[in-house]
Amino acid sequence: MEHTRHRPPRELTQPRELVVVCAPLRSNVNLSRIARAAGCCGVTRIIATGRPMKLDPEVARDAADTITLENRRSLEPVLKELRKEGYRLVGLEQTTNSHDIHHYNFPRRTALVIGNERTGLTDEELALLDEAIEIPVWGLPHSYNAATATCMALYEYCRQWPEG
């Protein structure tokens, strides 16, 4: 059997209706890792809140034609705006009422909300969500890195919506 590396990406039959929304992050590295995974998943829009963030130059070069990175001051107005646009606000956060990602069905039109690496999402931000999902952890520390968890959630969304 002969294998050829780097075959072309799969074609989406319709644009993804998934937006990645980040609470103020501490690290441009995490944002760059999120952007790289989002690009692989066919996501075209990332909204980063807080201080202006930049992508790693290599990631920025690769994503320049496919991903729009929007920088906004604060998360709450963004969430309210996305709700008006018809997005389901799904936070990636461990809460007392969060759903296990293994049993969660993503709505096609989803805004995936990512918390800060250390502090997660605030109580006020959590109150604006439609629901929260979490990724089970079987060891320590008690949660995955923000970028790693986002990659897992993006993959699960794409598994559920492979055509776009």
Rank of each mutant, 00 (worst) to 15 (best):
T13Q: 14
G139L: 07
Y144T: 01
V19Y: 04
E81V: 03
G86I: 05
P136A: 02
L128G: 00
A63L: 09
V19W: 09
H142M: 10
A64F: 08
E81D: 15
S74M: 07
K54L: 12
Y87R: 01
V113H: 05
R26P: 00
I46Q: 03
A132Q: 09
R16M: 02
E11V: 15
Y157R: 01
A64Q: 12
L154M: 09
A146F: 04
V43Y: 04
A63S: 14
E93P: 06
D123A: 14
K84T: 15
G50N: 11
L31S: 02
E81H: 13
G39D: 10
I135E: 06
E117A: 07
R61V: 06
R5M: 12
C22M: 02
P57Y: 04
H3E: 14
M1P: 11
R16W: 02
E93A: 09
I46T: 01
I46P: 02
L128M: 12
T119A: 13
E156N: 00
K54M: 13
G86C: 03
I135S: 01
E131L: 06
C41R: 00
E70W: 03
E134Q: 14
E117N: 07
R33K: 12
R109K: 15
Y104W: 13
R88S: 15
L18R: 05
N97Y: 11
P107S: 10
T66P: 00
V29T: 12
A35Q: 06
T110N: 08
Y104H: 14
